[in-house]
């Protein structure tokens, strides 16, 4: 039995496929690829698959993750190749890693996510949003109201933004935001609160969001950093300020 973590991208029209349908898509793809996936016990067995974090409908991504358990395999790379042979264009497995029993599930390990955010052409702001955003972010506290199951609560977004940059030529922003079971900051909340702070309205359809990757936290005696859930390159690590 092996546990595998697969990283995949989701681009093009596939971005309109909702999270549950992506799961159903993979269940069928795994059958088409004849992967020896492990099933749960019971009268209606299901494949042992779990996803890191749902992506909202309309967003693209180069950093989605799912964990699967197989009864047998030739190699992790072989599983990836077999799956890619039956993928639709638009969804591609880009890397695979074998997990040990002690590894946390992708869902639990997720700590942060990086996004590139643009505005859709027809809904671009009519003001210099990048400069305004920089000013906004320079404040010491960034309070926002987050909807929860039981109502609303105030959060400080500042502590949930680990990194950011703007690209004026591309008219885009890149954000590294908290995304864990204890704290998650959504791009839409950040942009919405920013727009509100300068008395502007943000159309819910305006943001064109692309997820670059999902990160986990690595903490040991000497250092503390975050890196992609599958990390093949230490350049992609972020050292967090203590």
């Amino acid at each position: 039995m092996n546990k595998l973590r697969l990283k995949f991208s989701k681009n093009g029209p596939i971005k309109f496929i909702g999270h549950l349908d992506v799961m159903r898509y993979f269940q069928k793809a795994i059958r088409r690829a004849e992967i020896d996936i492990k099933y749960s016990e019971g009268f209606s067995p299901h494949q042992i698959i779990s996803f890191a974090q749902p992506l909202s409908v309309g967003a693209t991504s180069d950093g989605e993750y799912m964990d699967i358990t197989v009864n047998s395999m030739e190699s992790a790379a072989d599983v990836m190749n077999k799956l890619n042979a039956v993928m639709n264009e638009g969804i591609k497995i880009t890397s695979v890693a074998e997990l040990s029993d002690s590894d946390e599930k992708a869902m639990t390990a997720a700590y942060a996510a990086k996004y590139v955010v643009r505005f859709r052409d027809s809904l671009k702001p009519d003001f210099d949003w990048i400069n305004e955003f920089k000013k906004y972010l320079s404040q010491e506290k960034l309070p926002a109201m987050k909807k929860t199951k039981s109502g609303e609560k105030e959060i400080n977004m500042k502590e949930m933004i680990y990194d950011y940059s703007f690209d004026e030529k591309d008219d885009s922003a890149t954000f590294l935001l908290a995304m864990s079971s204890s704290a998650t900051l959504k791009v839409a909340l950040l942009f919405g609160t920013f727009f509100e702070s300068i008395s502007k309205e943000l159309s819910p359809l305006a943001l064109d969001i692309h997820r670059i990757d999902i990160y986990k936290l690595v903490e040991n005696e000497s250092e503390k950093y975050i890196e992609p859930l599958i990390c093949n390159d230490i350049e992609s690590r972020y050292y967090l300020n203590a």
């Binding site: 093009g12 029209p13 639709n88 638009g90 809904l123």
Partner: peptide
């Protein structure tokens, strides 16, 4: 894959089940 959809992103995101209109299904 057909990247040129007849409907804009804004349109597809403002209607129920955009998957009905984007094609590109398996097979």
């Amino acid at each position: 894959m057909n990247y040129n959809l007849a409907l804009s992103d804004e349109t597809l995101l403002s209607i129920e089940k955009p998957e009905r209109y984007i094609g590109n299904e398996v097979n």
